[in-house]
Nucleic acid binder design. Structure first.
Lengths: 237, 237
DNA sequence: CTCTGTGAATACTTTCACAGCG
DNA sequence: CGCTGTGAAAGTATTCACAGAG
């Protein structure tokens, strides 16, 4: 895991009056990350036709403690039935709503190299409410190619493409050198939610939401732990 | 930087606190994640020929506070010069050593679909001390193909390939359905450091080090934050 | 004077313990 | 009883404030 920098957005002074909405309450970042796991597990249960689930079962399927599950769910309000558990379908909907997945998210992928193409064809996006609406690249050899059901656009037309497709999220699948420039253009074009796979630290204004995934970083973290454990079978100096 | 990306796990949970050398002190997980960022930044500086860097500069380049940088570096011991800063090359080496990157890491990628192939060709691994030694798949159409400088092996031979290549890390780039079975085989074959891109929760024994990257999860977290923000306006300083 | 290193304070997360609904 | 919901306690992480080396 890499790191996130979502500035503490938490000064939302409530509206005066009768609105102590559970809906609008800020959910701790750690809980948000886990809610996505619960959602995934719930949707599997839903597909299997399971109707109810306990915090213990859900916890087991997500590698979390059951207390943690209950605490996280309590941020959404109380929707379980004591002595019984949670209704799968209802809870799934409730989490989707809390995460903002009821609205349409249109994702443009910038960079049609190996990773960009892999992402464009990744079924997991479509399945979970994200619509990949554009794939862009700078390489003339790649522009115009069909990848999945998309045609690669010229990144020179970035602004036009983002506007036309009404993209509201961007995934940067670019080499380190190109990432900052493209990131700036994306933000300038009005997209403020960005997921970057580029192995560089991108500088973005306060209001922009940037998440980073760096695969080498993940391996390095694994290396740290592996190296600390005296492992049977592994040869080390 | 929120520590709330993907929930830190896989790491050995509460081991009995066997306090070792000052050198071998346990580094907090949040710090380990940031050390990889510092290392990346330092290696850029190194390539540029910069010799010294202050915690403030390093912090800026990594999106972290300078206090945080100094605290993290203090886990490795004190290597800065007061009034001056840190020596880039020395610090880079020191962090590499602490992260266990001085030994050779040989990575086998299981799954040669879009993502697996993208990863196999990802230069970022080689550049940062990880040697991709094998790429495996179950699909007869794919087995034998050349991807980068590798030939795709049959996943039926997983154990033999892992043994022959002496792989000590595995990346799972598989669909959800195949992941758990393959994960079990990998562990059985003696590899205990696994990075999974499969969108499922894998069950692994205590001693196994598992990290997960799920791209849809990342987008969902972005969606949560995006949905909470009012229209981008001029509410800055 | 500058910039590191670090105890102390604050903020955030997780776990515990148990009240209370069904 | 069983399982949820939640304050309070324990454990981590980050920031503050400042001592101290160069």
């Amino acid at each position: 895991m890499t790191a996130a920098q979502i500035p503490p957005q938490g000064s939302a002074a409530g509206s005066p009056g009768a609105e102590q909405d559970v809906e609008a309450r800020v959910i701790p970042p750690a809980a948000v990350a886990r809610l996505t796991l619960y959602l995934r597990a719930l949707n599997v249960l839903l597909a299997e036709g399971t109707e109810r689930v306990s915090s213990e079962e859900l916890a087991e399927g997500c590698g979390v403690s059951s207390t943690n599950v209950r605490k996280d769910l309590s941020y959404l309000g109380s929707y379980g039935t004591r002595g019984v558990g949670y209704e799968v379908q209802y809870l799934s909907r409730r989490i989707s709503k809390a995460l903002g997945l009821t609205q349409e998210w249109r994702v443009a992928i910038v960079g049609a190299g190996n990773l960009g193409r892999a992402l464009a064809r990744y079924a997991g996006f479509e399945n979970r409410g994200f619509d990949v609406v554009a794939l862009l690249d700078a390489d003339q050899m790649v522009i115009g190619q069909e990848v999945g059901w998309l045609r690669v656009s010229d990144v020179l037309d970035l602004e036009a493409v983002l506007h036309r497709t009404r993209a509201n999220m961007v995934v940067l699948a670019l080499p380190a050198g190109a990432a900052q420039t493209m990131c700036d253009r994306v933000i300038e074009a009005g997209v403020h939610s960005i997921l970057s796979f580029a192995p560089v630290m991108l500088q973005v204004p306060e209001h922009v939401n940037l998440r980073k995934v760096d695969m080498a970083t993940e391996l390095q973290i694994l290396a740290y732990h592996a190296q600390r454990l005296p492992e049977p079978g592994a040869t080390s100096a």
